[in-house]
Amino acid sequence: MGLEEKIPDSIILTTLDKVVNWSRKRSMWPFSFGLACCAIEMMSTFMAKYDMSRYGMEVFRPSPRQADLMIIAGRVSMKMAPVIRTLYEQMPNPKWVIAMGACASCGGVFNNYAVLQGVDRIIPVDIYIPGCPPRPEQLIHAILELHKKVEKESLKQPREHWGRTA
């Protein structure tokens, strides 16, 4: 009907939001940064058996300047907390955070003087994964959920005000 019929097959009509979100979702680069036990499960997720590269996510970046996704894999000690905050601030916008495991989400079994009771006290978190440590399937699920979340974002609303904690 109307204009669409006259457009040749090689042209696709879409919205800018959809294209931007699709490209952000399909090339999300995680920050290669492990803290404790969960980092080993995170590595397993990216290795042969679970193979995270199926979702366009195998490119681990060792520098925060090149990363979009920060996976907090492990317990955050009081000494490490300011470092994590700095690393988060060094990442360019837009950026996403996954708190992997019980320790990063809420302190886990370590309710004591040394461990920060949840990384959301210092940086905003998009997805929390329970488990000690979570299985690789859980991390994959969390990342797919994050993809869904990215799809709903809009360029009209800056990410900073997009209903996150902290």
Partner: peptide, 10 residues
């Protein structure tokens, strides 16, 4: 000390 968890004390 960047991963000090206080395990002994716990």
């Amino acid at each position: 000390g960047y991963l000090h968890t206080g395990i002994e004390k716990t």
